[in-house]
Design a protein around this nucleic acid. Structure first.
Lengths: 218, 218
DNA sequence: CTGCATTTTGACCAAGTAGTCAAGTTTTTG
DNA sequence: CAAAAACTTGACTACTTGGTCAAAATGCAG
């Protein structure tokens, strides 16, 4: 009867069994798929349970509330999602570092569009579940990288540009291809699926942004 | 007892009374507010009715289905949303035309963020209600403007750039400020509300994109 | 002012959905 | 190889919510 999380109330607080590990993974994978397509309200526990191949009460044995699945998923995803930003090397060459960052983001948008959409949907609706994450983790990281970029600008290695807006532009542009996939497909048609499309996208995005911030003669 | 739409079954097909006009407007305004915040599934008819100041059955007298309100709203919004793109003048100066377009889009994002979010949410979820609009109206318009941009590139008036990706980048960047408002606020804090923030944004976006596509020496 | 059309709403219904429960099955452990 | 712990599920409940309906209130044309 004990909930998966609670133990005998005096033993070691955290102990995950093999089965727990497997099933939580199954649930989270299924949930990512469903939540990213239908949003929080649009998703039913039954949908997730079916996709995960288990009964609803069983699913609720692992995550007592729908919210729990959702929040766990967002936390898992966000950390991974931010990794590339953290990798920007303050000592590296500015243009090279930003090229690498943009390329990584475009690749992520193609390889994990569900994660991007899950996040986009949450923010679009006011980020009720992750507002704290945004101010406590995202902001400090962005502040840090923004000051690096600002220094680069000061050293004349980049054209004068507001670092925050530059970062927003990179996010917006790269995630657009995941979040607005349907629209991109409606306009560009069959090209989208074709091999090489990602390279073509990367090339176009890199060309505009990097030339847009390359230092210019005054 | 007749539905608002049907008349005495043989009279002039379309006749909207004063009251109808007022109430439909009240409903659509309220609905834009609610739908853009909570999405289609997350919105209840009761919420809209309350915000519109009328009873639920009364609201359903004007729009027999929740879907009807939603679709009407999207159609109204989309036309307005695309207007700036149509205004790009093939005979004008390329950089000037694109500057004007970007500026208009940024202004719209600030003045009508709900419209942007309504649309973003719909596309994010696969655009079930407007897929047809995308291929029948949006695509042709984009194709047309893309060929104008391609011609400009051919004439050496712009750096070599894929016109479709350029348009996507402009959309992504400008709408980001409406759709991801919460995130922008979490990172930039109180600056966002301040007068002049829009100008600062416009300046940053214009600087990067326009310099990114300005013709360069080979 | 009167009678018909339009508008408005309280009460209600059916479907869908988050979450519970108690009883069963499987796995682990001493 | 028991006995305990962990896992699983059918059946159920409480609640939300889209939509109906019949009757009342209001507006309006002649």
């Amino acid at each position: 009867m004990a909930r998966a999380v609670k133990k005998k109330a005096n033993e070691a607080p955290e102990k995950t069994t093999r089965i727990q590990e497997i099933n939580r993974r199954l649930i989270l994978d299924a949930a990512l798929d469903v939540f990213s397509n239908y949003g929080f309200r649009g998703t039913t526990i039954d949908q997730i349970a079916e996709k995960a191949g288990m009964s609803k009460p069983n699913l609720l044995y692992y995550f007592p509330r729908k919210q729990n699945i959702y929040v766990t998923l967002l936390e898992e995803t966000l950390t991974e999602w931010l990794a590339p930003l953290a990798e920007i090397d303050p000592e590296g060459d500015p243009i090279e570092q930003l090229r690498k960052y943009i390329t990584l983001k475009i690749n992520m948008s193609e390889s994990h569009p569900e994660a991007s959409r899950l996040f986009a949907n949450e923010v679009l609706h006011g980020a009720p579940a992750i507002n704290e994450f945004l101010t406590k983790h995202l902001k400090p990281l962005v502040d840090e990288k923004a000051s690096v970029i600002r220094r680069w600008v000061g050293e004349g290695k980049l054209a004068p540009v507001d670092p925050y807006h530059l970062i927003f532009m990179i996010w917006a542009t790269t995630q657009h291809y995941a979040d607005f996939d349907v629209q991109v497909r409606a306009i560009m048609g069959s090209q989208v699926g074709r091999p090489g499309f990602r390279e073509q996208t990367a090339q176009a995005v890199l060309s505009i942004i990097l030339n847009g911030i390359r230092p210019r003669a005054v």
